[in-house]
Design a binder for these strands. Structure first.
Lengths: 101, 101
DNA sequence: TCCAGCTGTGAAAATCCTGTGAAAGCAGGG
DNA sequence: CCCTGCTTTCACAGGATTTTCACAGCTGGA
């Protein structure tokens, strides 16, 4: 039973992220980034940490892949969950996932 | 469940200052200033001391950066912890951090 | 082969941070 | 009260960082 705040559900073993029971159309990278973020709720994660979890290696010094995928994720999450911001930017550090927006 | 005295938690290694488990949106400078203040609780610190700890060098003679950032910090702390004043002014000297308001 | 979608990169556009000067506000002494 | 000096806050410009777009290479299926 989901509360009103728990609209997003992630099922890694099913390769799916659901909003109100409906799967989002996420690519593999997008889903794995979302998993990485959501598995450490309220924790500020650096780009290196996120990159390491998703790509399995250290990023180039000036790599911006994480930013680009965060942007793509936000676009899809934003369409499914308007007026809810789940991924927060921490300038100069990285990103943070907050389950309740 | 946190007691009323344990509302603010600082985790330098995670680049975070938490109130009730939720990170404040502090900039890097703001967080470092808070760390500098909080690492010497109840001690009156001069602007020079604070500036040296945060900026890593001596301030200009008439530098007011510390005051400005204290003001910004207070604004964000005040929103997260109303009716609690953690940073106290000591006129003509500097500032003092008091963990219990 | 052709097509559609995924991926990573460079770079432009948008946004945020930082430090400064200055105005406004406050505190204490006399 | 009234000064005076100190503190607080605002506004802004320059710089730094993030967000977004466009594209080229790649892959897998039709």
């Amino acid at each position: 039973m989901l509360g009103p705040m728990a609209a997003l559900e992630i099922r890694p073993e099913e390769h799916a992220a659901l909003v109100d029971g409906r799967p989002l159309s996420l690519t593999v990278r997008e889903l794995r980034l979302l998993e990485a973020l959501a598995s450490h709720p309220q924790r500020i994660m650096t780009r290196s940490e996120l990159y390491a979890e998703v790509w399995g290696r250290q990023p180039r010094a000036d790599d911006r892949s994480v930013d680009v995928y965060v942007s793509r994720l936000r676009a899809k999450l934003g369409r499914a969950l308007p007026r809810t911001r789940l991924i927060h930017t921490h300038n100069g550090i990285g990103y943070r996932f907050s389950p309740d927006g």
